[in-house]
Design a protein around this nucleic acid. Sequence first.
DNA 1: AAGAGAATCAACCGCGTCACC
DNA 2: GGGTGACGCGGTTGATTCTCT
Length: 262
Amino acid sequence: MGRAPCCEKIGLKKGSWSEEEDQILVSYIQQHGHPKRAGLLRCGKSCRLRWINYLRPDIKRGSFSKEEEDTIIHLHEMLGNRWSVIAAKLPGRTDNKIKNVWHTYLKKRTECHQATINVSKKRSMKPKCDSTAPSLEESDVSQCRHNSLDKKQTVSSIQPSSSESSLIIDSVANLVSEAGHEEFNQEMFLDDGFWLETLSGEEDIMESKSLTSISSVDLPTTSLTCFKNIDARNPSIGCNTDDMCLWYDLFTHDTLPELPDF
DNA sequence: AAGAGAATCAACCGCGTCACC
DNA sequence: GGGTGACGCGGTTGATTCTCT
């Protein structure tokens, strides 16, 4: 059995926070610099969570931009459910919020996108398909589209423009090709271009949408050296630790690197 | 207008890790 | 080296809000 929940130890309060509690916590943090008990009937863990996920002054409110959503999707493709790492690349967004957004609709969005790709692949592979009965995949896709497009979502907020996507792919493909990396396939272009944009020492991806900025960044010669311009504002995420290099390496290679014997 | 179901999001839980004694 | 507590993370829950019928 695991450890008993910390809030049950001494009858500490649980549940939603009141405005008064928020004010007490904020003023405590302003004085002491860390979100601990703050004299509240809350465990330190709860105080910390409240501060990180809600009270911090740099937290961005409101819905996610398309760029932020794309960033989350791309990072999730490569890193999986490492929400804290993903959150570190989205200033003002918490891991909790990103996790919620992912499970709310980004997951469906990517699944729909994948389903569409699968259907188009099957179509191209099997041109003589039965035209009388709709395939299971097609009905899945249409259902999926229906689910994603209804309710609050607008079409433009869900699906990236195909012309925009292909422009990005083509542009990055040209750059890599010029640099002598013809062996890269198109999927790798997407990922590498993303990493260049996201992890370069320049400003945030949200502020550096222009593709011309990519050309000013050194292209990777190997997967391990591509992080030389890593985000200097957040060294814990960057190449200063070996973590991101390791993850990048893991997710951009088909096989695991050889690990040293222990 | 009201009820049902879906979507959203804050908060909690459980576990692994680390630091300190 | 072992015990303990705090911290940080990802998974999950449940209350609230929204939308549809």
